[in-house]
């Protein structure tokens, strides 16, 4: 299959990025961030509460944790439901015991199916972030813009209504976007997006996404990657949480505030045998001075309030 001449033509080969969604910005060039209370680390705990419909189509790709087995995949369906019934409450109790609040990404389907869970999450003081309609409705460039606009509108409005919160954050299901997603999020009053794991600090988006910020929502330091995909033990995961904190804490002393983000899924981290090492890793972090636990919206506001 011969390649056309255009295979060796590079229209975006020049200074900066190869797209217009944000500007190139190496971390050492940033102005030092000052977090509230003089904190070095903004500790951002993220939970992801998802609904995987039993009639999954898995198109255009299988979302991580998706229903990969033959229909009806009760194994995976009920495992996710375990997270939404039991695991999420085990994590809420753990967080409350540590005095931590979290940002909870939710599919709108959670609000339709389990309105109590949405209201209770808000009542407990956690921030709710929109995560599409459900895990069967992925955002991708094969989706007509009108369909995607409708999905985003449904997701955001459903969660705003159910939670009573503004719902300022967005994570696409499986962190998958189309070329239109960022612009459409802005249309729907979203302030920050979590799909691009390219930084340890917030940064502004540009072009059609101007006004939005990207937030450093952890992909690598997540139970999904470390425990589910890579089969590390929970102790090994906890060790990495501690190692990440130590490095960021030291870096912040020299270079300004950092965000430490940790992502947990109730169907993974919410299993009984996993709670203790994760709780101990978080407790060890909280014994350090200079840790500010905040939600995504609070971190964003503090970032935007930095003197220019």
């Amino acid at each position: 299959m011969a390649l056309p001449e255009s295979y060796l033509q590079y229209p975006r080969r020049g200074p900066g990025m190869d797209h217009d969604f944000y500007a190139w910005s190496p971390l050492p060039n940033r102005k030092p961030i000052r977090w509230p209370q003089g904190a070095r680390i903004a500790l951002w705990v993220n939970l992801t509460v998802e609904h995987f419909p039993l009639d999954a189509v898995n198109k255009p790709f299988l979302p991580p944790g998706g229903l990969e087995r033959a229909y009806p995949d009760l194994w995976n369906y009920t495992l996710h439901d375990y997270g939404n019934r039991v695991g999420v409450y085990r994590l809420y109790r753990m967080l409350e015991g540590l005095g931590l609040k979290a940002t909870v990404a939710m599919n709108a389907a959670i609000a339709d199916r389990y309105p109590f869970l949405v209201q209770d999450t808000a009542r407990r003081g956690h921030e709710i972030m929109a995560c599409g309609v459900d895990m069967n409705r992925l955002h991708h460039s094969g989706l007509a813009i009108e369909r995607e606009r409708e999905s985003i509108g449904t997701s955001v409005e459903t969660l705003r209504r159910a939670s009573g919160q503004k719902v300022r954050g967005w994570m696409s299901p499986a962190k998958a976007e189309s070329f239109n997603t960022l612009g459409l999020l802005r249309e729907h009053g979203i302030d920050y997006v979590c799909d691009w794991p390219n930084d340890d600090l917030p940064y502004p988006l540009t072009g059609p996404a101007a006004g939005l910020h990207a937030m450093p929502h952890a992909s690598e330091l997540s139970d999904l990657w470390c425990l589910h995909q890579w089969h590390h033990t929970t102790d090994e995961f906890a060790q990495q949480i501690g190692d990440q904190f130590r490095l960021l804490h030291a870096e912040a002393a020299k270079s300004g505030g950092r965000v430490m983000s940790l992502t947990l899924h109730p169907w993974i981290a919410g299993q009984p045998h996993r709670i203790r090492p994760i709780r101990e890793a978080l407790a060890a972090i909280l014994r350090h001075a200079g840790v500010w636990n905040a939600t995504g919206a609070e971190i964003l506001d503090a970032f935007k309030a930095q003197p220019g």
Binding site: M1, L3, Y7, H19, W24, S25, P26, L27, P60, F61, H140, S141, G142, S172, A174, K175, A176, E177, S178, F179, T181, D195, W196, P197, N198, D199, D200, S219, E220
Partner: peptide
């Protein structure tokens, strides 16, 4: 596209996988 190999396992733009690689240059 190249019939032998395409980098991204999701349709372009693969924000998640692109962002992950780009972490290398930014940070």
């Amino acid at each position: 596209p190249n019939a032998a190999r395409n980098m991204w396992t999701r349709p372009n733009p693969d924000a998640m996988n692109y962002g992950w690689r780009e972490f290398g240059n930014r940070v």
